[in-house]
Every structure is written in structure tokens, then in C-alpha cells.
Amino acid sequence: MHPKASGTSASEVRGEALQRVIERYGTDPEALVEILRSLSEQLGYLSQDDLVAVAKVLKLPYSRVYGVATFYSMIETSPVGTHTLLMCEDAPCHLAGGADLRRALERRLGISFGETTADGRWSLRTVSCLGRCDLAPVVMIDGRWYGHLTVERLEAILARYEEEEG
């Protein structure tokens, strides 16, 4: 979920997040991967302006920052929904019913994996094995695990997220 502190502008929020991340990881170019991942986690995704800001603080060419940002799957470079659902699509999860979950999710939300719902609520993403194969099939919603899923259980989980928001 994205921070939306009332009374502060979006760009202020983004600036503050960058400051926090720099305080934590420093400005050594070596920290670039961690800085971008951490910032992306806090902001949901990184805009071109965000990448320019990081390049400036770390005194790196924009191309280097862009190259790193687009290489790693945990660094988002386009807007995502309020909630991001990551579904593992590797063999242990696939065999444990992952393919059915995938179809059910697409039907329920009316979008394909890789897309975001029109109301901006949900983004669906596939990911590689998350190392929880003993709980297959597995999804992660906003950083939280859900394992041993069936279509019914996943339905109930989505409904709970939606109720919480009203």
C-alpha cells in the first residue's frame, strides 16, 4: 500500500521517502540495488522523476540507474494498484493447482496478469518461485504470504481486502 499522508503533496512524500532510504543505505553507488528496491517498496513504483532524483543523489548517470531499475523484478517502474498480488507460477505451485488459481483470479478481477484493474485497486503479477513451495500454491499480497490456496480460500481473502477498504 502506498503512503498517502494527508496534507503533504505527492512529490513531498516521494522526496521524504528518498531521504529515509539514503539515510539507511548511504550514497555509495554500491547501494543502488537496495536503494531502488526499498524505495519501490515504499512508493509502490518508481517514476522517471524518482530515478532522476536517485541518479542525482548518488552522482550516477541516469542510464545506469534506469538499467538497474528495469533489471530487477522487485523494482516497479510503472504505476501499480493499491494492492499487488504476486502469484508464483513455477512447477511446484503450478502442479498444486496454481493454473486454476490463475484463471479464477483473472475472471474475478476482469484483467490479465501484468495488468491493473480500472479502479486502481488490484495489480496482478506472476513471479518466480518464492521459496515457499512446501505451502504450494502460494501468492503474496502486499508482502504477505498465503499458502495452501484453493480458489475458494483465495476468493475469501480478496473479499476481506476489499471489505477492509469499504
Binding site: 512447477a91 511446484p92 518461485c129 521459496g131 513451495c133
Partner: peptide, 9 residues
Amino acid sequence: ESEPGTFKD
């Protein structure tokens, strides 16, 4: 550790 099916580490 990212080899699908592996979670020992």
C-alpha cells in the same frame, strides 16, 4: 536461493 522447488537455505 531462487531455484524453483528449493527452500532449504
